[in-house]
Design a protein around this nucleic acid. Structure first.
Lengths: 206, 206, 206, 206
DNA sequence: AATGAATGAGAGTTCATTCAT
DNA sequence: CATGAATGAACTCTCATTCAT
């Protein structure tokens, strides 16, 4: 998956996989705590319990580590979301369910989501593009849910607004992470979920 | 205003004001283009047409420049918004008007808003707090509008949702900057405004 | 030959011979293109189609590779030269013939000769000494030719100048490689040969 | 002169001149002793008695130091040579005189000349070109002497051989440095000069 | 005999900040 | 009040060599 974008000196693919996971695990801790720029490559290597030399066998630049981290976070988020967006009688109940799930995931992954949100811009062009595409892919999961609801008549929404509404939903999720400093003072997670959901329902049941 | 947070070596207050404006103007150009971390103090000084030595008479650290810039951006945004949120028969029409204005301002200041959203985290604690407070202050402008609409009966919204709705409105504005890479492909500014407004109205006229 | 100077971990002498030839062939390509210092051991191993581990079974340090290469080049040059310095009626015609041959060889081996000329200094003391001795041995081939010419009366040269003249001849050959950037613009190989020969003859027929 | 090729961060030109001289003086000692590649920037800075940071205010890369050094050596050689190639009754006596001078200079500057001959190849393209041009300029000093001798009848040489002969003369000079390991064992400087001169005269008085 | 992952000292370079002028 | 040369700690990345498999 990331082989195209990040070549490794090491040939054994399983080893590469394993070591990169090690790197990701170490880097995530540091990046979420201190940010990408204030973390040094030496610190990362130390945290992963490998020598710098070894680390650089599996990446080419410090930005590569950031990319691996962003990719892993997105991957995790997408898979958790996909697992949860399933079944249900109609689109509307599915939407309610998946919105709640989205927010639970966002809450659990709060520092990670924040990380992506704040550091994506530090990626080189091509890798940034890749990350943004992933973001869109996740957003489109909600397009599917909305579409289903429109078709089975449980959701009222004009077709040309589907994409925008999906964006809005994702952003409502991200908001909880990047405005937590304020929202978290006023609302508990459940309060936030239910109030946003109430507003959402007004839009979709008008 | 920033005197408390950023002391200067220079006594003459007017001069300080003038020089800092110079610094802000230069730094904004560089920060929006290359980001905070990839901009050097030397470059900033050069862009402001002063020596580094002189620049450091008016600030203490590189982060101070970032703070000055963030503050200036917020100041500008708030004053432009305040100027526009005035008059009107009732809260509802005022809201529509001010939402449209918000987005026009966001669009014009797109790179600046993005800058705040990406680099605020690089500020030292205290200065960050100050910037976030300003963010809240701007958000509360919309609380006032909503409140007015509720009181004159032109807006239907439960009191405990006012704050959240104000946040949502601000985020809808910011979305246009930080998701422009995707939204900008699908919608023109006016399309974006009118579609978001349509959804908003459903929530407030239910 | 190089066994004394460069021990190998491997016992089978024929294998050592074969592998070292492989190393030389790969290294020569890289050294002539990028120079010794800008070539990495990894690159060399890759070019030779063996692992670094294997390569290090046959050498001890990177400098050893350089030594092997220098030695091989000298060996090749000497054997080609020896093959050609034979027969002929008298010393003078032999000299003319062998000078022409020297330059043809130098021209064909231009990048290799340049390599020796530029990188010998990077060898460790003892190996450098060995290489320089080889250089002298080749030079002395021309001493023999001159001596023959003096004895048969076809060349006029004082005995104490024989060594110097041999050096001059060798340098005339090397010049063609290390001043090729200038000489090559002005003269073709044949022109260069004939003009230098004309000057040489004036010295030896005075 | 080198301002075009090596920009400095420092504006005061005299200071640049002075500091660069300092850098050259320090670097020459190290380069002649250990070679360019085995000398570190830190060692250079230390030898020049400035901090690395300061040194890098006056250069951009380590190669720049090498260039400054090569340029300085050539400059010195040229000026010393120019000063000496003057006056005299006719071209022939001038040639003899200047050949002797050339060799005295080469001998005094032996390590420096060797340095140029071994490290020029490590320069980046453009700077290498510049250095080689300088080399040609020095060579052409001898073309002028030969031309003078031909015109006043004191030297017999075909016009189309002037350039080649000038090259030969330069190379005879350089030989003394890069074959000193052998020539120095057999000849004293004066012996070398006089014997080479004797051969030269045979060519030019035929 | 062959492999290639692991190592870490050390390389070149940058840049926020200071302070003598 | 203005200047800009000086500083050096700290950064990212490289690569010759080793050694367990």
């Amino acid at each position: 998956m990331n082989k195209r974008l990040i070549p490794s000196m090491v040939k054994n693919e399983q080893l590469v996989e394993r070591r990169r996971q090690q790197i990701i695990d170490g880097a995530v801790q540091l990046f979420t705590k201190k940010g990408f720029h204030k973390t040094t490559t030496r610190e990362i290597a130390q945290k992963c319990k490998m020598s710098i030399g070894t680390m650089y066998e599996y990446i080419q630049t410090k930005e590569d580590v950031l990319f691996l981290v962003c990719e892993a976070i997105h991957e995790k988020m997408e898979s958790r979301l996909r697992r949860t967006i399933k079944g249900h009688d109609n689109g509307f109940t599915l939407l309610k369910h998946s919105f709640r799930q989205l927010l639970k995931i966002m809450d659990e992954m709060r520092p990670l989501v924040l990380l992506i949100y704040q550091e994506t811009k530090s990626l080189p062009k091509e890798q940034m593009k890749y990350v943004l595409e992933k973001e869109l892919a996740i957003t489109s999961l909600f397009e599917d849910v909305l579409e289903k609801g429109i078709q089975d008549g449980s959701i009222q929404l004009e077709t040309h607004s589907i994409s925008l509404m999906a964006h809005n939903i994702m952003v409502m999720g991200q908001m909880w992470t990047f405005r937590y400093w304020s929202l978290g003072r006023t609302y508990s997670l459940d309060e936030y979920i239910e109030q946003q959901l109430a507003l959402l329902i007004r839009e979709l049941k008008a």
